[in-house]
């Protein structure tokens, strides 16, 4: 039986009828039309589907859409404001933190959570903070550099 859910996504209210078994990632991509969060492994391992729910980074492949009812979801599409990229987005661009780009939306959402909790993380803290996000291209060093650069810019 379908259920009605109402939630905020990137500041906009969405109301939809969904099956309880519909995963949040499928809801975001196929119902809400937001294809920024990617489906990588679909088994809670790779982090490509990371979004924030009430400010907490979560893997949206491991949450049912009905669990997000009444909550505030932010996807990568919600980071830029008035056409200005978020400092993390700029830093990933400038520091070559993205290669194929598949992991990038999740990587940035996890990094955003990290910088909210630890505004000036050391290299180890950054690596720990994105432990739940896999990148198969960069070897992570450019990602770590990007997060450091963003932290410096945001703290300035």
């Amino acid at each position: 039986m379908k259920r009605s859910i109402t939630l905020q996504i990137n500041g906009k209210t969405h109301t939809d009828e969904v099956e309880p078994r519909l995963l949040l990632i499928h809801y975001l991509r196929e119902v809400a039309g937001l294809t920024g969060p990617h489906i990588g492994c679909e088994t809670s391992l790779c982090g490509a589907c990371t979004v924030t729910v009430d400010g907490k980074a979560v893997k949206s492949c491991t949450m049912f859409a009905v669990q997000a009812d009444g909550r505030d979801v932010v996807t990568i599409e919600g980071l830029a404001s008035n056409g200005d990229l978020h400092p993390l987005q700029t830093a990933f661009w400038e520091e070559h933190g993205a290669q194929c780009g598949y992991c990038t939306p999740g990587m940035i959402m996890a990094s955003k959570q990290l910088l909210e909790r630890i505004p000036h993380p050391g290299e180890e803290e950054i690596r720990h903070g994105v432990k739940g996000n896999l990148c198969r291209c960069t070897g992570y060093q450019h990602i770590v550099n990007a997060v450091k650069a963003a932290a410096a810019k945001m703290g300035a």
Binding site: G47, A57, M63, Q113, K131, G132
Partner: peptide, 9 residues
Amino acid sequence: IGDVQVRNL
């Protein structure tokens, strides 16, 4: 435990 996304939920 696991990673930050898992520990958040």
